[in-house]
Design a protein around this nucleic acid. Structure first.
Lengths: 190, 190
DNA sequence: TGAAATTCTTGATATTTATCAATTCTGTGC
DNA sequence: GCACAGAATTGATAAATATCAAGAATTTCA
């Protein structure tokens, strides 16, 4: 199984090898440079990419400050699911934090996968349901946990982010100020 | 269009009238009494219901207290989407706050809709995507807004809840204590 | 390399929200 | 109507987090 096929399989759980290969063949490798935008707020999101290497930040502007929603890392995908699915204006900016190697499918090809892969709509449904569950976890993390517990959870799940991503972005993504994150880190170390 | 068909149409956006009728025919009316549970944490969620009348509270137990995730109202549906879709143990309790009239489909019938309605998996995908967007809004409300702004948003969107639902549940759902909600209300009135 | 820019940390303080305890209010059943 | 239980409010205080300002550390790039 190629690396790309592995990425796809992790999200789409394709039953047939030939279907998996057919899906993978619709993705094309591409690169973006540090600072490049994959998507800007207000535009239509026309692509879904898996990250082979690099980091991508998803954020929005709220008043006079940026709110980071998520940092996407190798093996994960990036898209604005709402915009990609419904063709509505994106509410997120997606910007490369580092040079990135991606595998990308555009909306047109994506929407034709149903013709090539009989089970496609079923797989796609389950993919979106998985995304739903991931989001549900995030809502829960705000309802059930304190800022400090959210920080500890992120340290446990993705410790590498703390070496690779400006802490101000992680703070925003956790729903706290950079100063608060800085103090929680200090507290955790001592 | 029947009331049930209208509810379904709001979420599934069915193209063909006969498909809509076919889907609606798989739902059966049923009633639950105030206090009854539609689902308990740990069980598998085997049904999806539209609410014709009444209110249902979705909540979980965290430590020694209950966290209300949502209050579902007439016209909306209730289910644990993760459990219903993947057959995994539910993480939520669903309890009737009042006597309720529902239209319910069980998992078995739901999963057979693909046989009766050609576009079903496509419709279902879009349904789940809509649920995803609703959740995304909720994550945003925690990242972008203060507790007070979340309160004001709920007042604007669902003012009737404040007459019909114990405020402690609304407080929990907004991610704050009952005391804080009480003070925000007082502040908003004056 | 070194200067400039950005990021991170730290301290002092303000604001927000939670906690705990005591009433008050409201609805329910007798 | 009255007593009771649950719910909501209020007050006093504590804890968590934000804000503002300054300085230290790090990164960027000419």
């Amino acid at each position: 199984m190629t690396e790309l096929e592995q990425y796809i399989q992790n999200y789409f759980d394709v039953g047939e090898d030939k279907d998996l290969a057919a899906i993978a063949s619709c993705f094309v490798p591409n690169e973006v440079r540090k600072g490049d935008y994959l998507l800007k707020e207000g535009r239509i999101c026309n692509q879904l990419s898996f990250i082979h290497s690099g980091l991508i930040r998803i954020y929005a502007i709220k008043g006079d400050k940026e709110v980071t929603q998520w940092i996407s890392t190798p093996g994960y995908f990036v898209t604005d699911l709402a915009s990609f699915t419904f063709g509505t204006p994106a509410r997120w900016n997606m910007q490369a934090l580092t040079d990135c190697e991606l595998y990308t499918i555009d909306r047109e090809r994506y929407n034709k996968l149903g013709e090539a892969v009989p089970q496609w709509h079923q797989l796609e449904k389950l993919f979106i349901a998985k995304c739903f569950i991931i989001l549900e976890e995030r809502v829960n993390s705000h309802l059930f946990m304190t800022a400090e517990e959210r920080y500890q959870q992120l340290v446990a799940k993705q410790p590498e982010l703390f070496n690779q991503v400006p802490l101000q972005y992680l703070a925003s993504m956790l729903g706290m100020t950079p100063e608060t994150l800085s103090r929680l880190r200090k507290k955790a170390i001592s």
